[in-house]
Amino acid sequence: MKFSSLLISLILLYFNAPGQRIDKNYTITSFEGVSQKVELSEADRGRTIIIKSGANQIAIYDCYGVTEVHRLNDKFLEIIYEQRGGSGYTPYNVLILCLSDGKLVTAMNTTYSAWTVGADAERKYSTKLLLKGGDKKGYKLLISISDRVTGKSLKWGGPYNKHQTVTLAFDPVMHLFYSGHKNLDQMFKFYGTPKQRHIKSVIPFIDINGEVSYFIDGLWYTLSHADDPPGPYQMKGDYLNAELTRIN
């Protein structure tokens, strides 16, 4: 998320990622043609990333800081950040932001890379993003995926070294990237809360290497299962995890 109109700030903001130096201020252009500043900062001793533009704000919680920031073009900002993992598990997410009507829009939020060390094998998963097209009616996002397992794992199989490319379309009205749409009509649990919610709607979704995310009320929710819950919470059945990200 490599932009020609990058505002280079003399004040550099250091996040928790060792050896990384991230500019504090960036400028991207809204879909209405207005240049607008996007500011990154941190709180809670680096465990929360705050992204502001005007009166709009996005907070990423329970993370370990930003590692990279790129501009895909003059309208899209790519932010790669380290999520909370666990023993032998180091995950990174990629958040793509754009601006519409002066407000931040989360065009995508999904796993960028992950390094997992098990008792019998090691798995390395990584992606590279390439934006194609010259306007919002023609944008496509190409995601090149590398998935490698060294050793033989009961969970992952292997050893193997797989490569594939996934192409996401762009919705010019909602301003987000997607694989397709699903007609949902079911109850979901939500990670980190006892609340349940009945989702009955046609929802944009992203499917990248089997990881499925739904766009609901301005957030990307990852579909998780009871046999692979994130964090310490043990939950039964399918549930939705918003990556502890919210828009204020």
Results as ranks from 00 to 15, higher is better:
192 G>D: 10
184 L>Y: 00
111 T>L: 14
216 I>G: 02
175 H>K: 11
40 L>F: 15
185 D>T: 03
61 Y>W: 09
121 A>T: 08
198 H>M: 14
29 T>L: 12
104 L>V: 05
66 V>H: 06
51 I>W: 07
90 T>N: 04
125 Y>N: 06
73 N>T: 12
95 L>K: 05
26 Y>H: 10
159 P>S: 04
191 Y>K: 15
194 P>E: 14
194 P>N: 15
49 I>D: 04
238 D>L: 11
19 G>I: 05
204 P>H: 08
52 K>P: 00
207 D>I: 08
244 L>H: 13
227 D>Q: 09
176 L>C: 11
38 V>I: 15
76 F>Y: 11
61 Y>T: 07
143 I>G: 01
155 K>I: 15
18 P>A: 06
158 G>N: 02
99 L>W: 00
136 K>T: 01
138 G>D: 15
157 G>F: 10
192 G>F: 14
206 I>M: 13
159 P>C: 07
187 M>H: 07
106 T>W: 05
177 F>V: 02
172 P>W: 03
4 S>K: 12
2 K>H: 07
68 E>M: 07
29 T>N: 07
69 V>D: 07
202 V>L: 14
31 F>K: 03
58 I>Y: 10
40 L>V: 08
235 M>E: 04
173 V>K: 11
135 D>P: 01
14 Y>P: 04
225 H>K: 12
196 Q>N: 13
30 S>T: 06
64 Y>R: 05
35 S>R: 11
218 G>E: 03
128 K>F: 12
93 N>K: 08
170 F>C: 03
239 Y>S: 05
188 F>L: 03
142 L>G: 00
147 D>L: 04
227 D>Y: 12
100 S>M: 03
40 L>W: 05
176 L>S: 03
180 G>E: 09
168 L>P: 02
112 Y>Q: 07
189 K>F: 03
20 Q>C: 05
70 H>L: 09
9 S>L: 00
147 D>H: 07
145 I>T: 12
44 D>A: 15
198 H>T: 06
75 K>V: 01
53 S>G: 14
231 G>F: 03
101 D>N: 14
153 S>D: 07
97 L>P: 05
165 T>W: 13
83 Q>V: 01
228 D>Q: 07
57 Q>D: 01
28 I>S: 05
114 A>I: 08
168 L>Q: 13
43 A>P: 02
41 S>R: 04
84 R>F: 12
107 A>P: 12
213 S>R: 09
27 T>Y: 08
204 P>Q: 06
246 R>E: 11
47 R>G: 08
222 T>N: 10
215 F>K: 01
100 S>A: 06
227 D>E: 11
217 D>A: 12
126 S>E: 07
122 E>W: 02
12 L>V: 15
130 L>R: 06
83 Q>H: 05
182 K>N: 04
215 F>R: 00
36 Q>L: 13
107 A>F: 08
44 D>F: 12
